[in-house]
Each structure stands twice: as C-alpha cells, then as structure tokens.
Amino acid sequence: MSDPSVLIERAKAGDKRALGRLLTLLEELNADNAWILERLSSEGGRAHVVGITGMPGAGKSTLISRLVRAFRDMSYKVAVISIDPTSPISSGSIMGDRLRMQEHATDPGVFIRSVTNRGILGGVSLAALAMIEAFDVMGYDKIIVETVGVGQSETDIMNVADTIVVLTMPGAGDDVQALKAGVFEIGDVYVVNKSDRPDAAKTYEYMLFVAEKEALGRGGSWRPAVVKTSAALGLGIRELAETINRHFSYVLESGEKERRLIARRTHLVRLVAARLLLQSLSEVMEGERERVGKVVRDMRGFYDEAMRIVRLTGKRLVE
C-alpha cells in the first residue's frame, strides 16, 4: 500500500489508513511525487478552512475539541490539522494537542493529524497547506487548523484560511503586545475563552473595543465578531460554531472565499517551488563541493560560481 494513486482512490472511498499514509507523502513532498498535489487540488476547493490561533495555553486544543462536537452535531465531516510550532528543525518533538481531542478519534467523520517540520525547512507550512487540499478532496467540510500565531512562520497559513479565529483569555497580560504584533488585525472572529474565570468580563470589553476599532480599518461588510466561551465547561460553543458558519456564508457570497483560495494555492505553489529548488540545490552543491571549494579560496569568480550553481540547479530541476 504505497502507490499514491491507489492511496488516493482508497482514501476517497473512506479508508482512513490510506488517507493517513497519503498525508505522510504530502509531508515529505519532493520532486518525484509532487504530482500528487495536482491530483488532489484539481478536485478540491469547496471545504471551509478555519484557522484557530492564539497564545500557548489559551485553550485552542480544548476549544477545537468542543467545536468538533458542535460541527459534528451539525452533520459536517471535520478534519483537524494541529501544528507543532515548538520544535527546532534539528530535534524531535512531542505532539500533545491531540490528547485534548482524543474523544473524537474513533468518530468516522473526524480525522485529526499532527504536523511538524519533519526536519525539513519550511516543512510545516507546506505540509499543512497540502493536507488542506487532501482533506478537501476527501470530503471533509470543515478543516480546522490549530497554530500558535504570533510572530511564527505559520502566520502565513492563517492568512490564507477562509475564517480566522483569534483566541484570547482573561488576564493574558500581553494584550497590548499582541495588538502591536498585529495579531488583532487578522481576526474574523475573536474568542475570549476561559470566560468561566472572574476576570473575563474585562477582557471581553477590551476585545469588543478592539473589534470595533478594527472594523473601521478594513474593507468588506464583515464586522469582526467577539464571542465568549468556556472550552472547559462547554459554554458559548454553539454560538461560536454558528458565528464561524455565518462568516463562511459571508466569504462565499462576497467572493472573499475565491480570493482566499487563490491566495492559499498561490502560496502553496511558492512553497513547493522552494522545496524543489532547495532539494536540487543541495544535490548540486553535494556534487560541486570540491570545485566550489577551490574557487572560494581567493574569492575570485565567486559571483560567477554562484550563478553557475543556480544554472545547474535549474537544469537539474527541469530534467
């Protein structure tokens, strides 16, 4: 069970084992199998991609678990892509978001997958975007992506989700910090989670103010919504799910969905191109190491050498 075409067919027929294997191929996409993406993307584009971002500990994973239940009650098929941002390229990682969602593991209409960089530069973004395409083709209606947004490379994924949900919690000291960092400029829906805590009202007021302020600055008729939830106690979840759905109707009707889809896929093209370039660049460098070593000894012809490597890389790629 390793032929991608077979995997795609089986996954479409609902075989989760095949889908799981396929996702691994996407994580490790390279020149030999990048064609898989074409097979997937040509049929996708209808799912609702919901990005959920916020500081570690804000309650994203717990909230997603609740949202999955709410969406399932509305009869949607749900996929969750949980991104581990913490581990450096050079080491392994422990992925723990999943443990907050394990109650859904055996639900036939739910698929949860953790993503790391797999030791590949830019690995996370590419893997996540490619997986979105796969889940879309396999008939998942809601694709929820969990990331730690602020200042991380994954913000680029957030920017291409259909609906961006930004999570805060009471007493999150760096509200001002976050405002400066621009997190509050991207949200379609703001959630004040942990509203079971006594200091939640203040944060809620503050978020209303932020949303208000921001509504002035953006185009389109969507006014950023603010929803109070307690993921721990399951409060406000239905309202959040409905708000997210309302936003989806908005992006569909306003043409925003089309724009975001194109932006997402454009970005995917860029990431795949970068992956392939880097891959053949390192292969070329491997072969040319000795010669390059001689040139750099006195730095003469350095630029010419670099350009030669670029040409070789291009040539190799095209072959």
């Binding site: 581990s87 080491s91 392994g92 990682s93 422990i94 992925m95 723990g96 999943r98 790391t116």
Partner: peptide, 16 residues
C-alpha cells in the same frame, strides 16, 4: 520515554 525519544530525534505523539 516520550522526552527521551524526542531528544533522540523522534516525533512522538502522546495521547495521554
């Protein structure tokens, strides 16, 4: 074990 495997370069999924 989870930590040691991570330190050894493994990807560890921990389900609690």
């Amino acid at each position: 074990i989870a930590r040691a495997l991570r330190d050894a370069g493994f990807e560890v999924v921990y389900t609690g």
